[in-house]
Amino acid sequence: MMTTPVKPEIQVVYQRPDSFTDLTTHYCPGCTHGIAHRLVAEVIDEMGLREKSIGVAPVGCSVFAYKYFNMDFVEAAHGRAPAMATGIKRVLPKNTVFTYQGDGDLASIGMAEIIHAAARGENITVIFINNAIYGMTGGQMAPTTLPGMKTTSSPFGRDVELSGYPVRMCEILATMEGAGYIVRRSLHDAKHIRQAKKAIRLAFETQERGLGFAMVELLSSCPTNWEINPHEALDFIAERMVPVFPLGDYKVNEELKH
């Protein structure tokens, strides 16, 4: 009996999102910025927001984020992305406006701007990369650096007597009436990356549904400045960072729950 050979169904299951450009990023091997970028691009694609999105890049390692996202972008001064995003969103309320900021940018020099954007309930989405260190300037102590952690500006380990304690942004921002969605996720393994993507999606939905300020904090790695290999860096997130920065939902508007 003759059998017709079955042609395997060929289907593209993984490709570059439309919201990404073709450029190779400048990020170090093992850095999780690439993953965070991709998750944002996938969500914008899936929600069909690319043509109305305006991104605001920060100062820090992701200063060139605008090169990698295939959409309108502006480049803010250090820490001022939420103010710049406010200006854009207030004159273009129908557009989707998001910032992408690191911990030095958002939790140190830009503390006032992020708190007041949340307090005003600005309808913007914030992607917050927390890797507990200043990457671009070469590994200095960040507001999120762990107690005891060695950096170039805390060479004997962060001494809490001298330089205080890590700042927990989700916990702070969750107290703001104007915040619609405040969560912390991690990028240290596949399961957590999938959870991070769901959160990013909800953070953009918060904006599209006009539910106020939304921020997803992503615990991220910096093997270069942590001076450990990429694999160890992922373990460092899980073992050292998560206990200080607990993962979870800090504020979720009721309307997002159904």
């Binding site: 305006i54 605001v56 502006v74 803010a76 001064a77 001022r80 103010a83 710049m84 995003a85 406010t86 200006g87 854009i88 207030r90 004159v91 273009l92 006032a112 701007e113 708190i115 007041h116 005003r120």
Partner: peptide
């Protein structure tokens, strides 16, 4: 039209910057 009393002059000018990038008279 858009009006925001910003948290500081630092924020105010950066709001102007953003809205100017959006092509509006600000």
């Amino acid at each position: 039209r858009a009006f925001v009393q910003a948290e500081s002059e630092v924020a105010a000018i950066n709001m102007v910057y953003g809205a100017a990038c959006a092509g509006k008279r600000v």
